[in-house]
Design a protein around this nucleic acid. Structure first.
Lengths: 340, 340
DNA sequence: GTTAGCACTCTTTTGGGCTGACTGCTAATT
DNA sequence: AATTAGCAGTCAGCCCAAAAGAGTGCTAAC
């Protein structure tokens, strides 16, 4: 069922005001602030209808109205007016990105830093796993008799955090040969493809089957999100929100937001596209406290996914700002990474 | 001035009880729990003398006594009886370390995890910088026309987070030669030494002076503590302490303990030796809130410093436990890293 | 459909009074 | 000279009642 224009407007004002003040919104304050042309009694009738429809709740019979999770969803999708960032804020984003953007890891750190800074919320980010990435170069570097570091260059980054076992009997020359042969096998192919050719390895590569299998194991590590791919910033920002005055709530929130594995499962779900993704209330996400929202965006450059970023905060957060920040950070980031 | 034996004993009991209960300690409870042979009035006289001496304070005229920072210091250095860990706890430590100790970074993560777990406090750790480390191998890996990844193997770890610029005109063969030549120059020498030979580079190496200078810059990065060397665990643990019921205190604490750079400056100070190091109250450390303590220990194996680890928490923390954990983690860690 | 007005509900604040947990002091005791 | 019993004094914490304040819902009039 469709809401009347006036109901929409009133609901928008309620959410606006509640986000701004954190105080239940009364009919009187609405007429004073936004609706001087109609009386508070009329507004009261509308409010009580909106409550009936599930968009508003009251803490007790004589308190003002508070938006429900439903109301926030409608607000974000339909009601809210999109915010613009100031030139100062845009310059700040550009400045940070241009300062240092050597490698993907650095970029991610900066991205979450910017987002947390501009939204005054806890921000989280995760690099998309390398599933579909194409491999350019593979290199082995032996640093102990029986282990070698694996270096992999893909289109978007240099992977250098994985070790494989190599037989001690293998000479350095043989390892270089393995590198050349397996390099030939892998380059130009994606992680997925390589893992799938596991068994029917042709005779040309047969001598290096064991090394290859070890390599496949190493590749697999990059195909799922790892804790080290998760970045978090500004975990203390939640304390600036008046509704988080309760120790248990804080504890609850921090127990999610100080543990990478929890944030990981949260973010690994939605890597679909560049669009903004809003989860309000639990929405089936048991990891988030149910008075929290998670707003994320997935960025790409040159058709390659960079990662998913976003904020976690109280359900009463400044969605206008958050969406504006995520959109602009995305635009600027993508343009910087694309032009080079 | 030296305290009488009885005063020491009483002060010890006060600190013991206060750490246990978080409630100001009264003369009556002291006689009931520990001093049944003397009367509460006598204890009152002693308490008031200890207050005079600056070891105890009162919140208001009719409250029990609370230890001052001075009292905690004396307690840790002289008064407290050393705690022993249970076999279960010792086994837990060993289990975790034996599970995974491939590379130094992993070990550090585990160390802080164990410490936080066993003490129920926020724990922090930092790898000691590589200043005095001797280099074994240096390797360049070109992954863009003008940049190469620098791999450095030292006695204790593989460093792989630094890039240098190389001239695009340089062929891969030339780069390999640079690697061999500079490898000869550097291997067996410490970071410090290499940086100091900067200028009077002998003719043999003259052709690679620019690469060498870039390499020196890369080395320098490893000679100071970096944010990525800092690890933190259990930032939410502070919320279990009843004296941290105040939002502002929590905010204060978290603003330190969620920011790596702040923790970094805290820890980079004292890398002297294996001894336990206790900073109680501010003690001139403006980064810590003044109702907090920082207890750290620096570990080594085979004469090589591994890093500095410790806990940050309320001044009223269980020092017996903390010291016991730090000592035992150190012993086990050092023995594991030494025997191999 | 809108509005003024009033009764009603519920939270929050205020303040008094009481209790209980201490201490400090004094005078008596060992 | 050190210890102790006893008592007066202080202060936080709790309970309770009363008052104030903020808002709603409803009704009757416009």
């Amino acid at each position: 069922m469709e809401l009347s224009e006036r109901k929409k407007k009133i609901l928008q004002y309620v959410v606006d005001d509640y986000i701004e003040t954190a105080v239940p919104v009364s009919s009187k304050s609405l007429t004073e602030r936004h609706l001087s042309n109609i009386s508070s009694a009329t507004v009261r009738n509308e409010l009580s209808a909106l409550e009936e429809l599930g968009y508003l709740t009251q803490l007790h019979t004589s308190s003002g109205r508070v938006p429900s999770a439903e109301a926030y969803k409608l607000y974000v999708s339909d009601l809210m007016v999109k915010d613009k960032l100031s030139d100062k804020e845009l310059d700040y984003i550009k400045k940070i990105f241009l300062e240092k953007a050597d490698n993907l890891e650095e970029v991610i750190k900066n991205t979450t830093k910017i987002i947390s800074e501009l939204t005054s919320l806890t921000s989280v980010g995760v690099v998309s796993p390398d599933v579909g990435e194409k491999i350019n170069v593979i290199k082995f570097f032996r640093f102990k008799p029986d282990t070698a570091l694996v270096l992999i260059v893909t289109e978007r980054r240099l992977l250098k955090d994985n070790y494989i076992n190599v037989p001690e009997s293998m000479t350095d020359e043989q390892l270089v040969e393995a590198e050349t042969v397996l390099g030939k096998l892998c380059s130009g192919r994606s992680f997925e493809e390589i893992c799938s050719i596991k068994d029917d390895i042709s005779s040309e590569f047969a001598g290096y089957k064991n090394i290859f299998l070890n390599l496949v194991e190493a590749l697999k590590v990059y195909m799922t999100v790892k804790e080290s791919d998760v970045v978090m910033e500004g975990q203390d920002k939640i304390l600036n929100h008046p509704e988080y005055a309760d120790i248990n709530k804080i504890k609850n929130f921090l127990s999610v937001v100080t543990q990478k594995d929890k944030v990981m499962t949260l973010l690994s779900g939605d890597g679909r596209d560049i669009k903004i993704n809003v989860k309000i209330g639990t929405d089936g996400y048991e990891e988030i406290p149910d008075d929290c929202s998670l707003v994320t965006a997935t960025y790409s450059a040159n058709g390659v996914k960079i990662g998913t970023y976003g904020v976690i905060g109280p359900i009463r957060m400044d969605y206008q700002k958050v969406v504006a920040v995520l959109e602009n950070v995305g635009k600027i980031l993508e343009s910087i990474l694309t032009n080079r």
